[in-house]
Nucleic acid binder design. Structure first.
Lengths: 170, 170
DNA sequence: AAATTTATGTCAGCCATATTGACATATTAT
DNA sequence: ATAATATGTCAATATGGCTGACATAAATTT
């Protein structure tokens, strides 16, 4: 057989379509938790903190900053809100007492689940509605959209959150 | 054969992994054009306007608002910047003279291409690095992540930008 | 022990981008 | 004529980024 479609470059139109689908999909994807957040007086930044802290309890502030790629001043405000309202608490590191290890309270974990639920439904629905090996290639593709220098960190995080040393990015 | 994996729900861990990959992939995906935008004193909002206007020249302000899902006040500022700096111009509608149909200048089209180039490379690289029918299932999956009520609009846009009547959303 | 680096927090100010509400204008449709 | 539509604009406000500077406590290095 001839090498049709082997190593062939994706056409311009198809590539542009994927760029735009990333925009539309993400636009709707992040819209899910917004109603709930608004009721609580929180924004998307709060959501991210609650999510990632809940996924890897005991993470350090520095690890969270590396995931979110924001400055500590920006994080500081959001973190303060969440601590004041009783969703997050900090615990002095055992081996390194400079660290303020981050944890969710029970209310924080509940909030995390409530925020995550509609996104999980959306993902499951998309996988169910996509013919073929939707799940596996989705995972592969998204992973390869991550910048090469960040992939090791992302992989570790995805596979190993909850274990020590997990943090995406270099 | 037994119905293994048929209609089986995606596991929690895999679903959460996909949620997080959406975050990481999008984080890096949108980081591409930022350097260039910064040099020009523009932000991501300017990027979106340049992109969508370039894809469907002659679109109305209302159509653009529907795509971006922002208020006209927010759009107004960004649009004014782009018009003042010579990247976008408006043309009175022929059939409806209330409309200010949006177009890119030559400089605007060049900027659009420069902003798009790194994202196209990233998509192509991801497709090439993903085994299997990466492109098709990526497209399917992203499409199905879009909210059902927005899919018709998105589909029309993706397939028909440049033709009249294309606008994603309800 | 002293000096340096690290982890974190905080103050002050700035910028981009979103919001709502109100109002104005020109044009089209009823 | 009146009403509805497409667009623009003014003012005020909020979120969530940013930089720079400085402070503290703890760990590490010299």
């Amino acid at each position: 057989m001839a090498d049709i479609n082997f190593d062939e470059k994706l056409g311009d139109d198809e590539t542009v379509a994927l760029i735009e689908l990333m925009f539309f999909a993400y636009r709707d994807f992040v819209s899910d938790p917004d109603t709930l957040l608004e009721q609580l007086g929180f924004g998307r930044a709060h959501h991210r903190v609650v999510h990632f802290v809940g996924r890897d309890p005991g993470m350090t502030v520095a690890q969270l900053l590396d995931i979110l790629r924001i400055t500590k001043q920006s994080l500081g405000r959001v973190l303060k809100d969440l601590i004041d309202k009783g969703y997050v608490f900090q615990k002095e590191g055992e081996t390194d007492r400079r660290q303020r290890l981050l944890h969710l309270t029970a209310a924080g974990e509940e909030l995390r689940q409530r925020l995550m639920a509609p996104q999980m439904s959306r993902i499951r629905r998309a996988v169910a509605e996509t013919s073929g090996n939707g799940h596996a290639s989705m995972r592969d593709m998204l992973y390869h959209l991550v910048s090469p220098e960040n992939r090791d960190g992302v992989k570790e995080w995805i596979e190993g959150a909850g274990k020590p040393g997990a943090e995406p990015g270099e």
